[in-house]
Amino acid sequence: MIEVEGVTFKYEGSGMNALRDVSLELERGKIYGVVGPNGSGKSTLLRLLNGLIPHFYRGEMKGRVLVDGVDTREASVAQLSKKVGLVFQNPEHMFFSETVYEEVSFGPKSIGMDPEEIKESVRWALEEVGLWELRERSPWSLSGGEMKRLSIACILSMKPEFLAVDEPTIGQDSLSKESLSEIFKRMRGEGKGVVIVTHDLEWLDELGPDVVFVLRYGVVINRGDPKEIFSDIRNLATNGLIPPYRYIVDSLLEVG
């Protein structure tokens, strides 16, 4: 379980807090959606989960984050990466290997997996995201959707308990989005916790998260059942979010 306890964080050189007194609990086997307008602290929240904050990003942090009871301040990002895998918005930032296979094996090698275990986990991760057939290709030759799936495989191969994903659907076509949904649902089925930061509420609704958090100005202003959150159209719209289409239609029908 990941427990975020009263965390307030301000980046070095920034005049305002990126997160303010945020508390939440994340369990295995569930999908969590984190939504909010730009600058609401969504990405900062993800960086907290795998220890990039406070280990990499400088700033003032109050409160604590516990990953399976371990304070993220007490463990390195490398150690935490075995528990929480973070998939970044732009996959190109991580690629440097000649082939897809080598790229995916980078993480397992970094955390010191056995050679046999590396082979097994790379194959499993590539099959999970449907890229096993493309394993000999260069990561740079893949399409946008394939690159995104590759970045997920790079993290999955480390067998983390939690998967935190930043804006997975940006620049993805509907087929790629569907494929991403399948991957995340499978992760949930395998007992992993999935945390997804997104602006794409339509896609998130189709994915079917268990809990949704709404952030604004670094504060969790709403949390709970996705149906309740998405039905509150006015609240979502005030926060610069487009509610899922079916909820807009329902609302219009009610008014009518």
Binding site: S81, F88, N90
Partner: peptide, 12 residues
């Protein structure tokens, strides 16, 4: 972003 991506993959 590159450094944080690699560090998140357990790279030291």
């Amino acid at each position: 972003m590159i450094i944080t991506s690699q560090v998140s993959r357990g790279y030291e």
